[in-house]
Amino acid sequence: MTGFRPDATELGDARRRVEALVAELPARPGDESFDEPWELRAFAMAVAAYHNGQYEWSEFQLSLIESIRRWEAEGGDAESAPWSYYEHWLTALETVLAGNGVLSDALLDDRTREILATPRAKNHHEPHYEPVAIDPAR
């Protein structure tokens, strides 16, 4: 359950391998950080699906370029459609997976609606001031 804890060197190597893939893609703005949790998740999923052999990296790359190009062609106006690199990333990932027949828009839409419809639990938007559990010293 805890997963494994790679040492720093192994992490560094893994990171460099991913960087090598990313180096060929249209640049991410700024300092390559992630603004939202879903961005990092989407990022990791694209690499994982590639490692699984779902597509050639170049296919994903072209799809990403195409999504960005379309946004630019449609005005590229930050006010009408705010720039989000990772929305393009997500679109690219959906596109290549749909192209392979492993994903359909309808299926994804349904699942997304399901997740959005899951009710938020009561009280969850309130601070909890006391420990939720205590295992006393004996």
């Binding site: 949790p37 998740r41 699906a49 997500l90 959906e94 994804l108 997304t112 997740i115």
Partner: peptide
């Protein structure tokens, strides 16, 4: 978007892609 990413991950895991 976060929900969509979550849905996508669930589908891919079910399909054994990752």
């Amino acid at each position: 978007i976060a929900a969509r990413v979550k849905a996508l991950e669930a589908i891919m895991i079910e399909k054994g892609i990752m």
